[in-house]
């Protein structure tokens, strides 16, 4: 097992805000790691530090086998970074954008690379269209094509699918998996649970600290969370009443059903006992990643906020 990213003790402050605190992260080569956490948890800052866009206050380690603080320039050449906001030139055509990227990375055989990239995207016929006129989904795919054109070994994606429709998202993820199968290491931040489930590994950070790490199943198992699901008329309306009961870590409606979770099984069962009768049907279920994340989020708020 080789590590594409192996950094520890990462710190970053903006003024008096300690955005990333003593964060360590290891990422195996060729795997897709999902970066999750509430807004403002330091996901973007961490990704930016890894690709040299921000200077960490402290921390050391290696990215792609290079000292990530001193060899940022060399890391940049082997890393693709896709920003949260579309950041290609809207007033250039698709082809011109790709040609610009190819030039910036001094890629040999530029025309062939651009054409290949266009073919892979399926945009050969629209190559002269301005990038700004593309739909959200196409913009994301173009941005992805632009940042893998120089065949990076590490791909950093910052909420790449925000505001993109489900079909385009699925295609986008198929592309990510195809790239990963070719050996590319991917770190992707997201808020979508279905996307978290598509990742090989998950890193959950909140308030600049690593809260959970591992595969989806491992993260769920380690949370120690017990979840009951209630179905039946009015189940979803119970969340307010249940949320404040002792032993209930959280209660959240899922459509017309209700998920109630806690870390102490006995206390949780006592809490839901008054409603454990008709017409509600209760079953113990495996907690979902979302249950775990919301639990982690609540916990971290109690600890640090």
């Amino acid at each position: 097992m080789t590590l594409a990213v192996d950094v520890s003790g990462l710190d970053k402050r903006f003024g008096d805000k300690h955005v990333v605190q003593n964060l360590s992260i290891q990422v195996e080569t060729g795997r897709i790691t999902g970066f999750l956490g509430p807004n403002g948890s330091g996901k973007t800052t961490t990704l930016r530090m890894l690709c040299g866009l921000l200077t960490p206050d402290s921390g050391e380690g290696e990215v792609l086998g290079l000292d990530f603080r001193r060899e940022a320039e060399r890391i940049k050449r082997q890393t693709g970074y896709m920003t949260q906001k579309f950041s290609l030139y809207e007033d250039l055509s698709i082809e011109e954008n790709l040609a610009f990227v190819a030039r910036v990375y001094s890629l040999p055989d530029r025309r062939r690379r651009v054409t290949e990239s266009l073919e892979r995207l399926g945009l050969e016929n629209r190559r002269r269209q301005l990038a700004g006129s593309l739909s959200g989904g196409w913009k994301q795919r173009l941005a992805l094509a632009a940042c893998v054109m120089h065949e990076p070994r590490l791909l950093l994606l910052d909420e790449p699918t925000a505001g993109v429709d489900p079909k385009a998202r699925r295609e986008f993820w198929d592309e990510i998996h195809a790239l990963s199968a070719e050996g590319l290491t991917v770190m992707v931040s997201t808020h979508y649970m279905d996307e978290a489930e598509r990742c090989h590994d998950i890193a959950y950070i909140a308030y600049g600290r690593m809260m959970a790490r591992g595969t989806g199943d491992e993260v769920i198992a380690r949370s120690g969370l017990v979840t009951f699901r209630a179905e039946g008329p009015g189940a979803d309306r119970l969340s307010r009443k249940l949320a404040d009961r002792p032993g209930v870590a959280m209660a959240a409606p899922f459509g017309s059903a209700l998920h109630v979770s806690g870390t102490d099984r006995a206390a949780l069962e006592a809490a839901i006992a008054p409603w454990r009768r008709d017409p509600l049907r209760w079953t113990q279920v495996e907690p979902t990643l979302e249950d775990v994340f919301i639990h982690l989020m609540n916990q971290s708020r109690d600890n640090f906020a």
Partner: peptide, 13 residues
């Protein structure tokens, strides 16, 4: 303003 600087800075230029 357009956010393209972030991408530009991530390249070796």
């Amino acid at each position: 303003e357009r956010g393209t600087m972030e991408s530009l800075l991530a390249t070796p230029v």
